[in-house]
Design a binder for these strands. Sequence first.
RNA 1: CGGGCUGUAGCGCAGUGGCUAGCGCGCUUGGUUCGGGACCAAGAGAUCGGUGGUUCAAAUCCACUCAGCCCGACCA
Length: 507
Amino acid sequence: MTLDQKFATMANPFIQRSYMADKITPRATDYSQWYIDIVLNAKLADYSPVKGSMVIRPRGYAIWERIQAEMDRRFKETGHENAYFPLLIPMSFLQKEADHVKGFKPELAVVTHAGGEELEEPYCIRPTSETIIWAMYKNWIQSWRDLPLLYNQWANVMRWEKRTRLFLRTSEFLWQEGHTAHETQKEAEEEALRMVEVYRDVVERHLCVPVLMGMKSEAEKFAGAVHTLSIEAMMQDKKALQAGTSHYLGQNFAKAFDVQFQNREGKLEHVYATSWGTSTRLVGAVIMTHSDDKGLVLPPSLAVDQVVIVPILRNDSKVAVIAHAEGLLATLKAAGVRARLDSDDSQSPGWKFAEWEMRGVPVRVEVGPKDMAAGHVMFARRDTGEKFTVPAGEIGTKAVEVLEAIQKNLFERAKKFRDDNTHVITNYDDMKAFFGLAGEDAAGTANAKGGFADALWCGDAVCETRLKAETKATIRCLPHDRQEGIHGSCALCGAPARHRAVFARAY
RNA sequence: CGGGCUGUAGCGCAGUGGCUAGCGCGCUUGGUUCGGGACCAAGAGAUCGGUGGUUCAAAUCCACUCAGCCCGACCA
């Protein structure tokens, strides 16, 4: 968006001036443009020559690597092993599970030629790997002693998308998919729950994004699953974002691929399965949850650079200040902080302040001749904008302390935002008013109506479909910890309620 | 797949038939600066998305075409 276009959409002429130098469209003006501006200006990703596919740049990839590291550690702690399966999947494999192929058909990219010849049987590029993995599990599982089989794969997948959004929805994306096989239904269901809890832990603890965990409705579950569990987050425009899913697959894939084992009683039985995944979409979730009109805001635990030192360089003191700053850098690193020193003297301090803020570095340390003389440094927090002095000798311990405070504050701030925008709704009129009638908020601004509607539901898909048609809101999940003692009537049709559901517009 | 917008230097744009295609930012070199997006000077950088047509002459007019983004329906 050009400055002129930006100005054209701004109502208040006084706001215009303060954003003259800005590269980021304010959230209140255009939320989706704001998000794009952040991703591009913070150099997290870029559009690629391939339609619908993005390039993840180092600063963006580093966030993914940190998420990956946390996830991977927990997968291994819970007994899983990593493996790798082929990118190309024979089309006939997908067709073995009826619901599954139906669910993915429109999104498949198909390879028909290779080696200069048309292939006997086309391959599709994996949209997910259940089918090829189950084709192999058939060979690997014979006895209850082979179970459970707990594999995970880090891979790219492709789901052709008509409309894409950086990180949130691209045709090719990176993810992790766990595929497990178990002796019993109970064990498999426990696994699905265990892994969604792993997701919740990583997302809340490291991404500082509060989530609701619960079961998907029939309409929203994964194609081929018996049931789907998900974690759902609220973005700053009050829309929901699914941040991870875990499926109990029952015996559907075992039957489709004829994977039987001899159980402890010596009888043949189909195995019980799960699959679970999180993707680079999580990077989008972090960006959208915490960032502001100045740019990216990152939780310290995901930030490539947790602290940046910006020295104030004057000709008469440049050498001394840089030497001092290098000492501070060493102290920070010794304290276990990921720190960098920006001693480039071709940019002014003010430029650097704005630049590092845009890139989301959680703490900036300013140090100039005056600070040196006074024996302190200036700290600036990215999350609150707060500035304060710290004795130079305490820079390491103080940095650790402030980073922890930021990590905590980001989660709490996001949780408060979500809770403030979650409302109990008891009847259809209120529901429609809550989400606004379809088309009413075409601008899609952050001030749009909506949020999470906490409501009772009869369980009938008809109610769900009607609401979706009229308000675009869908059931995000049936929160796992709120299904006890349901009594009352469905907020949509008035029939006796069977579930408590959270409704929202979603990404 | 519908609706809208846009393709001219790395980015953002100006240029509605005329001779050497401009401006801002960024980039390079040198110098002065430096506590919230500094300044001066000198440079480099474009076969104007593509193809065909009209014309003495096309970035500009016409036709076709390709691509991208945004908004909507579908999806992690």
